[in-house]
Nucleic acid binder design. Structure first.
Lengths: 213, 213
DNA sequence: AATAAGTACGACCGATCGTGCTAACTTGTC
DNA sequence: GACAAGTTAGCACGATCGGTCGTACTTATT
């Protein structure tokens, strides 16, 4: 067995290259929430990580591949900062609230300087066809699907009304989070996350099930 | 008195020029919701209206001025399609619902091909400083302020609970509209507006005041 | 030590961007 | 009909874009 691991594209990777690639993609994920996935140029990205343009480009076959890899990296960051921490909360309503709280927290902490990566990317790529948009849509859908699963579980446990429309609940939860993100990053309104929290609490209480409390 | 009217920039306008300028800005407002305000290039805009690049450019001193004029035009379209029609409804809760309904309708009808112009512009300009961002922020704030006035009026009339937090109500209303816009244009979910309507109805009913119904 | 592959760089390409300049044409006023 | 002003197009500029290429350096294996 070798110390190097084969890369996804069949190319063998070296330790230093992997470090560079990771640094590039981390910077790209952050910058993309400010400049946009398209607006982020390879040259500026290179400056930001202290490399030459061609040095950065050498890690990817095209800008499109860089963008898709950036989306994947953003998802890893999102999972680490939002999805995974929420698993610490017990299943049911508590975990639904926990993931929403983790989301709002990651906005307040400025994990991405331009707010939620996927909201930003979705807004930018709306209306443009292509693999990048498809990939963002797929990942975003997965995240929403995950939220739906948590809500559904809470309903099965009776902590949320089993008769409630799951998709409607998810829509309203998502709307509050999207609204808070927008107010926070565009209007610089630091009270927005608390407004979202109040809305979330009300929403979950209104749909509380008959389970013992 | 002359038949030509002095332009805002001190330049006298000719009828054909005014027509051209209007055509340019209308196309720009629509295209900007798809390509973005920055992403929209003067060359492609010129192609779209059947003019040369320099012919389009001659109407503006810079791209920045074109962008700001585009925002103003978008606001005129928004007022014509959303704000003004809502005035047909009687003051109070009915008018609040009417403006939300007009907003959702303008999304469903595809008044702007990329959904709400201001949500699109806000998402794009988030994090970028400059006069264009400032102007979008100012106009968007005005629109939200207008919504706040309608809510406040409904509270004063007793149709909405006067004790309710007006800003919180506006935040939740806005969130539902923003959420519906996002789901509709990015995920192509045509049920989103109806989900927003359901959420709006619930929100307004929960905060109903003690007035006779 | 030799070798093969991965990594990074600088120079360069064609395309497109915003923008300025100039000349021709159209419109409205005298 | 002359004249001024507004309108439009053609052309060229410098900058920046994504992308290619040849080359030198580094790493990991033999």
């Amino acid at each position: 067995m070798t110390t190097t691991t084969p890369g996804k594209d069949g190319r063998r990777l070296r330790a230093d290259g992997e470090r560079s690639r990771h640094a590039i993609l981390t910077a790209a994920a952050e910058l993309a929430t400010v400049e946009g996935l398209d607006g982020l140029s390879i040259g500026r990205l290179a400056d930001h990580v202290g490399m030459s343009k061609s040095g950065v480009f050498a890690h990817f076959r095209s800008k499109e591949e860089l963008q898709i890899a950036t989306v994947d990296t953003a998802r890893e960051i999102f999972d680490r900062e939002v999805s995974t921490p929420a698993l610490a909360a017990p299943e049911g309503v508590a975990r639904v609230m926990a993931i929403c709280e983790a989301f709002l927290s990651h906005i307040e902490r400025g994990v991405f300087p331009g707010g939620c990566f996927f909201i930003s990317a979705a807004a930018e790529l709306e209306g443009k066809a292509g693999p990048v948009r498809d990939h963002v849509l797929a990942v975003y859908s997965e995240l929403l699907e995950g939220l739906g699963q948590l809500v559904l579980r809470a309903q099965e446990m009776g902590e949320l009304d089993p008769a409630a429309d799951t998709d409607q609940l998810v829509f309203e939860l998502d709307s509050l989070l999207v609204g808070a993100n927008m107010q926070f990053v565009f209007f610089d309104d630091r009270r927005a996350p608390d407004r979202a929290r109040a809305g979330l609490r009300g929403l979950l209480e209104r749909n509380a099930g008959p389970s013992p409390r």
